[in-house]
């Protein structure tokens, strides 16, 4: 091989490459980190998020009874195709992050956004107390006490919020509370885009 005789030029090159290698690694890492931070900001990247298997599909077929005492109708799959975008929100009175996101849901409801509620694994009396105390943002409300409909949706915790477009296709899912930032940066633009 030619390397039997050391080539000073090649050796110098290698040394230069070795000096540049850490810089290149740092540069790549920096670029990756920047992309990650940007994604966190715009919501394209969620380190804890697991993509929903429902995105791009119609929600599963289901029919849930109403919550007695609210006067709201129950919820079934047919209600999710209304010719305008809407949110489906799974919540429970025992769920602390649900308390955090509640004001945001109320704000959306005041602005005329249709929010469908599903009470997940909650005693009806407790759900009722929760809504009496904090207000009801829902246009319809289904009770899923056994949590089986939630499994058909691929839910793995509460709260979870799904955005459904005007033709009844799931476009977005948030696992965790809808904070003010998420509301302004994601939910409202998405509602506009899918209107």
């Amino acid at each position: 091989m030619s390397e039997a005789v050391p080539n000073p030029e090649a050796a110098a090159w290698r040394r230069r490459a070795l000096l540049l290698a850490p810089l290149a690694v740092a540069g790549l890492g920096g670029a990756g980190f920047y992309a990650m931070l940007r994604g966190l900001g715009t919501g394209d990247y969620d380190p804890r998020g697991v993509p929903s298997a429902l995105i791009g599909k119609a929600p599963p077929d289901f029919s849930l009874p109403p919550l007695e005492g609210t006067g709201l109708p129950g919820l079934s799959a047919a209600d999710l195709k209304a010719g305008k975008p809407m949110l489906v929100n799974f919540f429970a009175s025992w769920c602390v992050p649900c308390v955090i996101e509640h004001p945001q849901l109320m704000r959306l409801a005041r602005n005329g956004v249709a929010i469908m509620g599903i009470a997940y694994k909650d005693k009806p009396a407790d759900s009722l107390g929760f809504l009496k105390q904090r207000g009801t943002p829902y246009a319809r409300l289904g009770v899923d006490q056994p949590g089986r409909v939630a499994i058909d949706w691929g839910l793995y915790g509460v709260p979870e919020t799904y955005l459904i477009d005007k033709s009844g296709i799931v476009r977005w899912r948030m696992a965790g509370p809808v904070t003010e930032e998420i509301l302004d940066q994601q939910v409202i633009p998405l509602l506009r885009r899918h209107a």
Binding site: V50, P51, P60
Partner: peptide, 8 residues
């Protein structure tokens, strides 16, 4: 289960 919860 896979249909509902995806690859993960």
């Amino acid at each position: 289960v896979h249909e509902r919860y995806g690859d993960f």
